[in-house]
C-alpha cells in the first residue's frame, strides 16, 4: 500500500499539522510519501524528509504553486495518484483550512468520496469521524479504491523527526491560471501556532471589546507562553481577526491547558476545544454551559479575576 501525504508548509518550514498527518498515515500502514509543492520550497522538502516513517519526499517547485491554489495543486496531484507504477491507495492531508480547500477537489476528480476529519483509524478501510459538531462519532467503511482523507490533527500525536527519506524532484503540473491571489492579510504573531499550542488563553464576548481583550489576555498569555484564541462572537464583534476562532467552523485545538474567559460554551465552541486536557472556565454566570466541561471553574468577574491570575503566576 502506498500513501501520499500532502505537506503544508510556508516553503521554508513545515507546518506542524503535516507531522500529525504523517502519524495518521503510519496508523494505516504502508509506504508513506510526502508531497511538497511550492515555490523555492527545498527547505520544506528537507524538513519533510526527516519525518519518521516517510520513505520518499516528492518535490515540485514552480512559481504557480506559490499561492497554493486548489486548481493547480489538484492538477498536479490527481495524475500523480493515478500514475502507472506510482499509484497511491491513499491521499491524506490535515483537516486545516488548506486541506479542506484542496482535498475534495482531488477526490471528485478521482471519482471517490472523501472521508473528512478522521480522529481514528480502525482498519485499512474503516475510520472514525465526528459529525454534528462533535456530538456524534460515526465509524465509516470506505469502498473506494483510493481513499482521500483529511486528518484531525489533534487526534494524532506528531510524527518524530528521526527519519531519513529520499527527496525526488518531479516536473511541475500545468498552470491553469484559474484563480489569482491578489491580497493577503496575515495575522503576525510571535506566539505559538494555535493548533499546536500547549496552552491557550481564549476570550469571548464577555471581554466587551478588542481593547479589553488585548489588555487583559495578552499579559496572561505572555506569562503562560500561550497562544490566543477566541469565540465566534468575539471575532464577529471585531475584537480579534478570524484566524483566532476556535470551534466547529474555526480551529480545532486540544492543548494541555485551555483557559476560557468570558466564553459561554455554546456547542459550536465546545466542538473546537472539548478534547483539551485541562479546561479552566472563568465566567460570571454560574449556569454558563462552559462549566459543564471545565475541570476547574471560577465564577467571577473576569475584569477582577484575570489580572489577579496574571499577577499570581510567576
Amino acid at each position: 500500500m502506498a500513501i501520499l501525504v500532502i505537506a503544508e508548509h510556508d516553503n521554508d518550514s513545515l507546518r506542524s499539522a503535516t507531522r500529525n498527518t504523517v502519524a495518521a498515515a503510519a496508523r494505516i500502514g504502508g509506504d508513506i510519501h510526502v508531497l511538497v509543492a511550492g515555490m523555492n520550497c527545498a527547505q520544506a522538502a528537507q524538513a519533510a524528509a526527516k519525518l519518521a516513517g516517510v520513505v520518499k519526499v516528492i518535490f515540485a517547485d514552480a512559481p504557480h504553486y506559490a499561492d497554493q491554489t486548489a486548481e493547480n495543486l489538484a492538477a498536479l496531484i490527481v495524475p500523480l495518484v493515478k500514475a502507472e507504477g506510482g499509484a497511491y491507495d491513499y491521499v491524506l492531508a490535515p483537516a486545516t483550512g488548506a486541506g479542506k480547500n484542496l482535498m475534495p477537489r482531488i477526490a471528485a476528480l478521482l471519482d471517490v468520496a472523501q472521508i473528512s476529519d478522521i480522529v481514528a483509524v480502525e482498519s485499512a478501510d474503516t475510520f472514525v469521524r465526528p459529525i454534528y459538531a462533535g456530538n456524534v462519532l460515526v465509524t465509516v467503511r470506505s469502498i473506494d479504491a483510493v481513499k482521500v482523507i483529511t486528518v484531525r490533527t489533534t487526534a494524532f500525536d506528531a510524527a518524530g523527526e528521526e527519519g531519513y527519506a529520499v527527496v525526488e524532484s518531479i516536473t511541475a503540473g500545468p498552470d491553469l491560471g484559474q484563480s489569482k491571489l491578489v491580497g493577503r492579510e496575515v495575522s503576525k504573531s510571535l506566539r505559538p501556532e494555535l493548533i499546536a499550542a500547549r496552552v491557550i488563553v481564549s476570550g469571548g464576548r464577555g471581554l466587551g471589546n478588542g481593547e479589553n481583550y488585548h489588555k487583559l489576555l495578552e499579559p496572561l498569555a505572555d506569562k503562560l507562553g500561550a497562544a490566543l484564541g477566541a469565540s465566534r462572537a468575539a471575532v464577529d464583534a471585531g475584537f480579534v481577526p478570524n484566524d483566532y476562532q476556535v470551534g466547529q467552523t474555526g480551529k480545532i485545538v486540544a492543548p494541555q491547558l485551555y483557559i476560557a474567559i468570558g466564553v459561554s460554551g455554546a456547542i459550536q465552541h465546545l466542538a473546537g476545544m472539548k478534547d483539551s486536557k485541562i479546561i479552566v472556565a472563568i465566567n460570571k454566570d454560574p449556569d454558563a454551559p462552559i462549566f459543564q466541561v471545565a475541570d476547574f471553574g471560577l465564577v467571577g468577574d473576569l475584569f477582577e479575576v484575570v489580572p489577579q491570575l496574571t499577577a499570581a503566576l510567576k
Binding site: D144, V293, F296, G297, V305, Q308
Partner: peptide, 30 residues
C-alpha cells in the same frame, strides 16, 4: 454511496470538574 456507516455513537462525555473559590485555589490546583 461509497461509505458504509458501521456505527454511530456519542463521544465519551467529559465530566464537569470542580468549582474553585478564588484565584489562589485555581493556581494551586493547576
Amino acid at each position: 454511496p461509497r461509505h458504509v456507516p458501521v456505527k454511530y455513537a456519542f463521544p465519551p462525555k467529559r465530566s464537569a470538574g470542580v468549582r474553585v473559590a478564588d484565584v489562589a485555589e485555581l493556581v494551586h490546583k493547576l
